[in-house]
Simulated scan of single mutants.
Amino acid sequence: MSLFSKYTGAGNDFVIVRGEPLGLRDAGALAATLCPRATGVGVDGLITVRSLSEEVVRLRFFNPDGAEFSTCGNGSRCAARYAVDRGLVPPDHILVTDDGEILARVREDDVALEYALDARVERELRARVGPVERDAWLVRMGTAHLVIPVPSVEVENFDDLCRPLRWREDVGPEGANVHLVAREGGMVFIRSFERGVEGETLACGSGCMAVAFALRTAGEAGDRVEFVARSGSPLIVEFLEAGRIRLAGPAVFIFDGVFPEATP
């Protein structure tokens, strides 16, 4: 039997497994088995963690459909907490992803990541949300993010509204994550439709960074942006010196479990 752990980062939940025991088994097939909410553990994705040294771990990320992707903000925060909980690394350590290295700082349930920012507002466009066409930004930050300001994120039929936006031709052949954002009392409320999950998730760390970058580029936000995720949890994005960005918020252990050796 092989052990997995479930963690949640502000409501964005993941199955995490050690990469070494997994060996040559297909992690994508394992994700497709473990992630579904009706027949599996019920999470937004799977992460493998492999120890590279006493201060460095290597991460890989898989969507519930089994497709691998390059990085994930809340997933990386959960993996950082997992690696510290398992004694693989100290509280301050390095995560290696396909998008580069990330400095992680774990302080019990609070986990912060520091990135070398590689983002750009690719274009401004118009997006129809229900009967209304609104201004929007397409942000490239590893994955494409379609950011749409709205008066309120309390919209009906969220998935149905976002699904055609996720597949717009002008966001690229792989589509985009879709984020509706509304500013209230100094906070930014965000709802996210994530590709690969193909539905709403309760939080999206990379989405918060993309939104913060778009707002800052447009002159509508400063160097610190405070978000309220759909889960109600806070996520904070801060722009640092030398083009770096910090993502901080809660990352919490939920439970351990086992999957049979026969699992792909």
Rank of each mutant, 00 (worst) to 15 (best):
S2Q: 13
L3N: 08
S5N: 08
G11F: 08
N12S: 06
F14T: 05
V15R: 01
E20D: 14
E20A: 14
L22Y: 06
L22D: 04
A27K: 08
A27Q: 08
L30G: 03
A31T: 00
A32M: 09
A38F: 13
T39E: 05
G40C: 10
L46Q: 01
L46Y: 01
V49Y: 05
S53M: 12
V57T: 05
V57M: 02
F69M: 07
N74Y: 02
V84H: 08
P90D: 09
P90T: 11
L95D: 09
A104R: 02
R105W: 00
R105D: 03
L113H: 10
E114K: 10
Y115L: 14
R123E: 13
V129L: 13
V132A: 10
E133K: 03
W137N: 01
R140I: 06
L146W: 07
V147N: 07
I148G: 12
S152P: 03
N157G: 08
F158N: 07
R163M: 06
R166F: 00
R168W: 00
D170A: 11
D170V: 05
P173Q: 04
P173K: 06
E174W: 10
N177A: 07
H179N: 15
H179V: 09
L180I: 08
A182E: 10
V188P: 09
V188D: 14
I190R: 07
R195H: 04
E198K: 05
A203R: 04
L215W: 06
R216T: 05
G222D: 09
D223T: 14
R224E: 15
S233I: 04
I236V: 15
V237E: 14
F239P: 14
I245E: 12
A248K: 15
A251Y: 05
V252G: 06
F253R: 13
G257V: 03
V258E: 13
A262Q: 12
